[in-house]
């Protein structure tokens, strides 16, 4: 198994890192309404997993989903425009942070409902494979999702029907504020193993390690057809949601946060490149995001008269609220 391109990995974690930092600035300035769930600290997982995917593979993300969408290849400018609710956004301003999707890039959508993506991506992969395509899928999920019955049902279907979906659990230690130890009886990996799904564990802070483990799993899946499970241990550097910036919630000690932040996927990936190369990538990422923010803020908001557009794919027109 050849290793992932360290330049691509570093560029991707750096892009996600700076995208999230710029997005947080836009939350503070009021240009992004409703806030975001920052992916800061977890960038190595999206980058490492997506580095092992092909363009025709599909992924389903989570409420903390910006990293998955960007790493799978969505345009940062359209993504930022989506967060700002602009008509040029990926979803034409209809989805926002928690529903960003890019079907052309194989992103079936971030998803605001915990544990919901697993069955959806399983169905999508199954339907396309029935047509003879040999793609695989990835369902990203958090540690909170492993207690959702719907996800456990999806494990069962994927295993029974031999659908090649990699379930990637980003275990950042907390479901919002609920520690894993207080929420998970048994273990996370054992849930998958109970369905006969092979489970691996990896250091989610090391993008190259995530890539290597993912690539090995995908090779088995492409040959064999069945699902696998990957638990990536990680740490969320920032808030569960940006509302925490205003309302301090007391669930992680400063020491724990400092310890968690000491293993930074951006620094780990960056340390594998010469300084000059790193600086060039940094400069390029800054330019990309500068343009992304500028274009997003310059773009038009959707026309209120189009608020119900896309509600029905059949062309059905809904009655308005009247008056």
């Amino acid at each position: 198994m050849s290793g992932a391109d360290p330049i691509w990995l570093y560029r991707t974690v750096r892009l996600i890192r700076r995208f999230e930092e710029r997005a947080i600035e836009l939350v503070r300035s009021g240009d992004i309404v409703g806030g975001i769930h920052p992916y800061l600290g977890q960038e190595g997982i999206a980058a490492g997993v997506c580095a092992a995917l092909r363009p025709d593979d599909v992924v389903a993300g989570t409420h903390r989903g910006h990293g998955h969408v960007l790493a799978k290849g969505a345009d940062p400018g359209q993504m930022m425009a989506e967060l700002c609710g602009r008509v040029t956004g990926l979803n034409r301003g209809r989805g926002g942070s928690m529903h960003a999707a890019d079907f052309a890039a194989g992103v079936l959508g971030a998803n605001a409902i915990v544990g919901a993506g697993g069955a959806i991506v399983t169905g999508a992969v199954w339907a396309r494979r029935r047509r003879g395509e040999d793609l695989v899928g990835v369902s990203f999920l958090g540690d909170g999702a492993v207690n959702e019955g719907m996800l456990l049902e999806a494990f069962n279907l994927a295993a029974l029907w031999r659908v090649p979906v990699l379930f990637v659990c980003e275990n950042n230690g907390y479901a919002t504020t609920m520690p894993v130890a207080d929420a998970v009886a048994g273990s996370i990996s054992a849930r998958a193993e109970a369905f006969g799904i092979r489970a691996s564990t990896v250091d989610g802070q090391d993008p190259a390690a995530v890539h290597a483990t993912t690539a090995a799993a995908l090779a088995r899946m492409r040959a064999d057809g069945g699902p696998e499970f990957l638990e990536a241990r990680t740490f969320r550097f920032d808030a569960h949601h940006t509302f925490e910036h205003a309302v301090r919630l007391d669930y992680r000690s400063p020491e724990e946060v400092a310890r968690g932040r000491s293993r930074d996927p951006v620094r780990i990936a960056g340390s594998r490149l010469p300084a000059a190369e790193r600086a060039a990538i940094d400069a390029d990422v800054e330019a990309v995001l500068e343009a992304a923010v500028a274009q997003a803020l310059a773009a038009a908001e959707p026309d209120p008269a189009t608020a119900l557009e896309y509600l029905y794919a059949s062309g059905l027109t809904a009655r308005t609220g009247g008056g």
Binding site: L108, V121, A124, A127, M150, E153, L157
Partner: peptide, 28 residues
């Protein structure tokens, strides 16, 4: 049996499985 698929008693998963299949062009 590919097109007449018996499911385990997992209504939530097989309903969303159908959603996923439909998202890529199937008509479950």
């Amino acid at each position: 049996p590919e097109r007449v698929r018996d499911t385990p008693l997992s209504e939530q998963a097989f309903t969303s499985f159908a959603t996923g299949a439909a998202l890529v062009g199937a008509r479950p």
